[in-house]
Write a protein that binds this DNA or RNA. Structure first.
Lengths: 319, 319
DNA sequence: TTGAAAGCGATACCAA
DNA sequence: TTGGTATCGCTTTCAA
């Protein structure tokens, strides 16, 4: 008991006792068993479950980096869950991770299976939904409004005078942020007297090469496309390479717009038209909200992290 | 007690009892507390601590994805630790994570602080050192010999007739895989009658833009460089963009070689000379070794995952 | 300032 | 087939 007090620096013991205890700690190579602490029920664990769709997508790798760096700085640990973009995987992971009494959960996306939602409500721990901003979250939410970001991009492309527009992205079995962007995008195009003549959703990862061959598919199947909007910058980059390889000039022959403003955009010969999203900051903000809640500080439930259009030079200038 | 047996499906109870127990489970929304199981000391936890230097480097994001997907498929969870390339961070993280009684640890790199090494030995749990193959590991190791991969690249560039060669990478305060590659590379160049005229180690992340401005620094400070070897493909891509932007022709004016064979190489206008490393497979292999050990299957202690030179078209053809 | 006792949830062991 | 009892390491409570 006295040893326990010394180790927690709780006070109420003499210097001599402390010295003796510490000597024994060294001699025995004692490491505390935090499981027992949590188990005793008084303290909460320092685990935070973090679900991420996949790490092949640089966007999510950055978000996770932001989360874990911040959590780590405050002595908390991320327990990772790669959900592969499926609610079923997420549900299974939630069930498993809850059994470990995490201090809280950070989940990518605002959609969860009904049973997952039940478990989350009953768990009685903080939950931060990230990425796709949820204005009426389970508990807390941080991210951006993807519909709006797609809408803004669509409006910008309309202002550049494009009429016949294509989209290249990937499809997943669940509603997600990318589809919200596409919805917003289509709304803007249609409302602006343009037409999304083709939406190509590949069953593949949202990476460079799918952007490349997706563009080939899109252009070979549909005539008269003036501009292509991609799910993210990696795909846009692949598309740009395809167009260049086929001798098309960007933007005079075809416009190319990405999303996410990934690091690769910083070294491209042309500035890629894109949408800047502060991925690292988003992750950090999520971790901050979690940590604040865990230490009973007041936290706003919803935080919009914002986005910013990058006009770039891969689409025509606005009229 | 009976409920415990039913929940574990251990047998030794009647169907009626099972039904009654399950009814209560549903009614109460019962979730097991796995902490108690582990705490009781009979079972081991399903946590595996995974230390990764940083996720901004696509290479490590892929390795982590490989690890977590495989672990997840066998109902184990990754507890992440981003060590920012420092042994001190690693040591602190090891101390913390060990207190949670993980089933095992997967660590990036073969170098650890003395105290970390002590803790690892005393922990009595499986440890897999990955990335930089350790032929006499603490416990198990999977990865590649980075010295050799650098050596092979050096020898290849020599066979292409280059003499004056530059290097652009990043520096960290610890010995690591990238420096082993550089060592092997220099050995090959010097043994082949060439010269590494300049090694530029930036204090930055090993990403696109540092490759871009690093190339500028390298070329403006040193005359007559015929070929540049980069720490990874992202930096090489940045360098390639710089050279192209300055009107240099690759490979006739200057050769460019990367390392890692990242996805972006698949859409580049030229095939980047690089070194293929199966990152995802490496992560999976690490997880497999861990899982095998945890289920007491026999496992070889060291596994070389191999690499393969990609000749590409960004350096001259061999003579 | 110190320590004895109880209890957290699950399970091994043994008794009914 | 069922359930009582002890146990894991730590912390809270209370007594010395």
């Amino acid at each position: 008991m006295t040893a326990s007090r010394v180790l927690r620096g709780e006070g109420g013991y003499s210097e001599m006792t402390k010295t003796k205890v510490m000597a024994q700690v060294d001699a025995l190579g004692y490491l505390p068993n935090r499981l027992a602490t949590v188990f005793a029920g008084d303290k909460t664990s320092t685990f935070v479950g973090v679900s991420i769709p996949d790490l092949g997508n640089e966007v999510f790798a950055q978000v996770l980096e932001g989360i874990d760096r911040k959590l780590g700085a405050f002595d908390h640990q991320s327990v990772l869950g790669l959900t592969q973009h499926t609610l079923e995987e997420e549900e299974n992971w939630i069930r498993t991770v809850l059994a470990w009494q995490p201090a809280g959960l950070i989940l990518t996306g605002r959609y969860h299976s009904p049973r997952a939602t039940d478990m989350l409500r009953n768990a009685g721990i903080p939950v931060v939904e990230i990425w796709d901003l949820n204005s009426s979250p389970l508990d807390m939410s941080v991210g951006i409004n993807h519909f709006d970001s797609g809408f803004d991009m669509g409006r910008y492309l309309m202002s550049c005078g494009y009429k016949r527009i294509g989209y290249v992205g990937t499809s997943h079995d669940t509603a997600n942020a990318a589809s919200a962007r596409l919805d917003g995008f289509c709304r803007a195009i249609e409302g602006g007297d343009g037409e999304v003549v083709k939406q190509l959703c590949l069953h593949d990862t949202a990476s460079y090469y799918p952007g490349f061959y997706g563009t080939e598919q899109l252009l070979s199947g549909t005539q008269g496309i003036e501009c292509i909007f991609y799910q993210n910058d990696a795909m846009a980059f692949g598309g740009l390479q395809f167009c260049t390889a086929r001798g098309m000039n960007v933007p005079s022959d075809i416009g190319v717009a990405g999303w996410g403003d990934l690091p690769i955009a910083s070294v491209m010969p042309q500035r890629l038209t894109s949408m800047h999203v502060p991925h690292l900051k988003l992750g950090q903000a999520a971790a901050e909200m979690m940590l604040a809640r865990l230490s009973d500080e007041p936290v706003p439930n919803v935080r919009d992290i914002g986005f910013r259009l990058i006009p770039g030079t891969t689409v025509r200038r606005p009229d």
